[in-house]
Amino acid sequence: MDKRIRVLVAKPGLDGHDRGAKVVARALRDAGFEVVYTGLRQTPEQIAEAAMQEDVNVVAMSILSGAHPHLFPKVVDLVRGKGMKDCLIIGGGVIPEGDIPALKAAGIAEVFTPGTPTGKIVEFIKTNVK
């Protein structure tokens, strides 16, 4: 058996900065994961459909624009709607502490804010992927 953890790294919304997403993608690759990177300015519908076609274990989203309260929960609903019940959905970016509880309640498994060592994200994924 040759199982590898597959992760979709996605940038929902309109902000044009993917340095952070690329750093995370690279770290996940170096941890032995297969990382599908879809580039900038993805709609939640595109992210959910790509996650389904690629049968990923994890969807990791990055937002720097402040649109996370709207976009993160929408992606969760759409991914679940595709029948991907076990898919772990995590988020990162410039996200105020106060917003995190609501995101978690909406189904985002964990939120990683600036300064998080990439190793922490790798560990979280390894521990939580079913």
């Binding site: 993608a25 690759r29 941890a31 032995g32 990382v35 879809t38 519908e45 595109q46 690629e54």
Partner: peptide, 20 residues
Amino acid sequence: SPFSGGAILGDRIRMNSLTL
């Protein structure tokens, strides 16, 4: 990667408008 076993699969970036 022959070193980590990981990979960056980036072909979809050019095909985003086909996703839906």
